[in-house]
Design a protein around this nucleic acid. Structure first.
Lengths: 201, 201
DNA sequence: TTGTAAAACGGAACCGCGTTCCGTATCGTC
DNA sequence: GACGATACGGAACGCGGTTCCGTTTTACAA
């Protein structure tokens, strides 16, 4: 559920032509995902599309036929990790001793994911039009899970009830921005503080 | 020679040529600051340099002679507000009933400032090379003040002692990203939560 | 006032990046 | 092997930051 493993293909819907009848299409789709994952690791998610195309040994046109925009490529690369994070929520709720503990662990998972992906947190919150899809995908997938954990913790009387999932997720994402490039900045610590601030007085 | 920017000089002037003997220089300097401030309000701090030049009725070359980079222009526009915020720290410490109350008020001031400047928080944390100066200016000016407030609160036994000023300031700045463009996201609330999390258990 | 050098001005030009377009190469099928 | 459909590569476009340079303005002196 955390880093590496770029290879796994997305479910249909990742690219436009996941199940094409043409062999070269399927091959390039996979080649591009692998290349993008590799480039993202070394250069961050803000890496130029041309770099990804070069790494994959294809032209930029090919990248755009498979992924209409750079954001779609980013989504495709990380989709399964986001999904894994989403699925971990209910599991933690069932396994942990308390909803608040589950929330803490789950948030930790999310932060670990974001912090190890160079520039992902920043891209996600970027008001750059092209990245709205990225923002939306993360939020659509994770906000409901967060809401469920929050609700359980509120029901258990462990946290205050004036916090909703959406701003909390955005805030956590925001706190992760720049964590990879500044050793003096400890995002995990601050997120822990924020989650601590949720506790009922 | 990159040091002559309006970054670290102690002079009250905003740009590099504030006290030129040529009157057109002084006039353009002021015109540019006014134009930039106006454009920042309507289009955010990410507004194209060309727009600012047009608003000021000058060519882009003139903008760059006065402000070596877009970030320097942003710094110049907001410098006095940052300074005012920095100076408010000791004042609040003296005026408020407790260091923690002073910290809360001061953080509120900072957040209000950031949240009302379209895109400023995002620009400040951008890993875009040109904005490092902006980041640095804010931090140089505000971190010492924050440290002073933190220290006083720790000395008074009000907050935990494992938080330093730098990550706290960065975290608060991060939480403000996107607050202006998303009504569902309440940065003030989250920052309040974070500051609440500082309290000693 | 007028001449002159220094400094500033404007905006075309350059570079990098996301994205689009289109002539060409490749694939699956008959 | 021929053919239509589809994908490919990469040149071209638009945009934004920054630089460059020929032209204009300024301050000062004769």
């Amino acid at each position: 559920m955390n880093d590496s493993a770029p290879g796994a293909d997305g479910t249909p819907g990742t690219g436009s032509a996941a199940g094409s009848r043409r062999k070269d299409v399927r091959r390039n789709q996979q080649t591009l995902l692998d290349a993008a994952a590799a480039v993202f690791v070394t250069s961050g998610v803000e890496a130029p599309v041309r770099d990804i195309a070069a790494e994959a040994g294809v032209g930029v046109g090919t990248v755009y036929r498979h992924f209409p925009t750079r954001a779609d490529l980013v989504i495709a690369v990380y989709r399964h990790q986001v999904d894994a994070c989403a699925e971990a929520g209910p599991a933690l709720l069932a396994a942990e001793v308390s909803p608040h503990a589950a929330l803490e662990r789950w948030v930790g998972l999310f932060v670990d994911f974001l912090v190890t992906k160079h520039g992902l947190a920043a891209a996600m919150q970027s008001d750059d039009a092209g990245f709205e899809a990225l923002h939306a995908y993360f939020l659509d997938r994770l906000v409901p899970v967060c809401a469920q954990l929050l609700e359980a913790a509120v029901a258990a009387g462990e946290i205050r009830s004036d916090v909703t999932a959406y701003p909390l997720m955005r805030g956590i994402g925001n706190l992760c921005i720049g964590a990879e490039t500044d050793s003096r900045y400890d995002a995990r610590h601050l997120v822990a503080l924020l989650v601590a601030g949720l506790r009922k007085d």
